[in-house]
Design a protein around this nucleic acid. Structure first.
Lengths: 195, 195
DNA sequence: CCCAACTTGGAATGACTATTCCAAGATAGC
DNA sequence: GCTATCTTGGAATAGTCATTCCAAGTTGGG
């Protein structure tokens, strides 16, 4: 005989994700979350728990819904080096224009903020890093098999390097970096890998 | 006939810089700054203004005292590619061990936080980025003149790339990245540049 | 149609925050 | 040593924050 929820928890979590993504966690009062989602404090606390648990759930949603599909696309792209170029092109585009322009990456932002101190958050950050590196590595393996990259390259270290570059793009885009310059930097590193 | 200050403002600013560097700005109550510096609220406000102005001054101090000397050393190092390797070696070491281990870079941290929204902060961030890129470019020019790097390299884009890698190192080090992996990534990019 | 179980909105709470203010203390020139 | 002027410490203020609580409303099975 329980009453049913009058809203869609996952849709709400998506809105919360956007707020925290753009503005971080400490600078968003719970009142703003209430205003954004349209539901009341009671419903928020009853459904998601406190502010911190809400943030963690939003961060997890970001990794699963925003990052993972992009990583999957990269890993599934059989073109090798062009797949990597495509990944970075899309990344820079998302970071610099459109709905989420200049928001950076929610995971990158969490690295720098006080959120990173929390063990739960740290685990999500590590998961994200591992998945990104794995996707990079997969694409690099394809590129290696196609002899698109120089022989004798340390593919694992290169995968990690490309992940670092992605983090750099995320960071600088938030501060208003010129997308053309970012693209040139990516071209520089991908060009260097080329055989 | 004025009384003289009973403390050294610059030494105090150094302490404040460390607190904000490690913990960010929003998660540090002014009470903690008072406790760290040992002086009173009155003296803090009278000398530096409010919390935000204090943060900006600390950030500026960080750029001038922490970043700039490192950039200068890089730009003055006439070895070319080894100078860049040395820069990254020292960077990773500072970020992963010693007094400031896992603090990241105060400027990188500011990129991701809510601080980046402030125009004054943004200007410091851009200044830092420009100086870092310039130092990288200088070292790359030397490397180019010595024919240490591949011909036909876009040196400006490569300088920007290396800056992005540095930001990536700063970010990941804060989340506990393995210094050996970071070093391998740096080796990968520097190895690629080599002729 | 009724009722138990849940949701909801909004007010209330209590802790914490940045900032200001004032009386007391310290200084350096005269 | 005296005094004008600044510094200092701590209390006071006003605002904001996350969280809790309760009365009223809503649901769906019997």
């Amino acid at each position: 005989m329980p009453d049913v929820k009058h809203f869609d928890p996952d849709a709400v979590l998506g809105q919360v994700e956007c707020v925290f993504w753009q503005r971080g966690t400490t600078s968003v009062p719970i009142a703003d979350v209430v205003a954004t989602t349209g539901l009341s404090r009671s419903s928020l606390y009853a459904t998601f728990g406190g502010k911190h648990e809400l943030y963690v759930q939003a961060l997890r949603r970001y990794v699963e819904w925003r990052s993972q599909p992009v990583f999957d696309r990269l890993a599934a792209d059989e073109r090798g080096l062009p797949a990597l170029a495509d990944f970075f092109d899309r990344l820079i585009q998302v970071r610099c224009e459109g709905e989420h322009a200049r928001w950076g990456c929610m995971v990158s932002n969490a690295h720098a903020g006080a959120e990173g101190g929390d063990p739960q958050v740290r685990r999500v950050l590590d998961l994200h890093q591992q998945r990104l590196r794995t996707a990079m590595r997969t694409a690099l393996d394809v590129a290696g098999a196609k002899a698109q990259v120089r022989a004798g390259l340390d593919l694992q270290a290169t995968a990690e390097l490309l992940a670092l570059v992605a983090y750099g793009v995320n960071l600088r885009s938030r501060a208003g970096a010129d997308p053309a310059e970012l693209r040139a930097s990516v071209s520089a590193v991908l060009g260097c890998l080329q055989s």
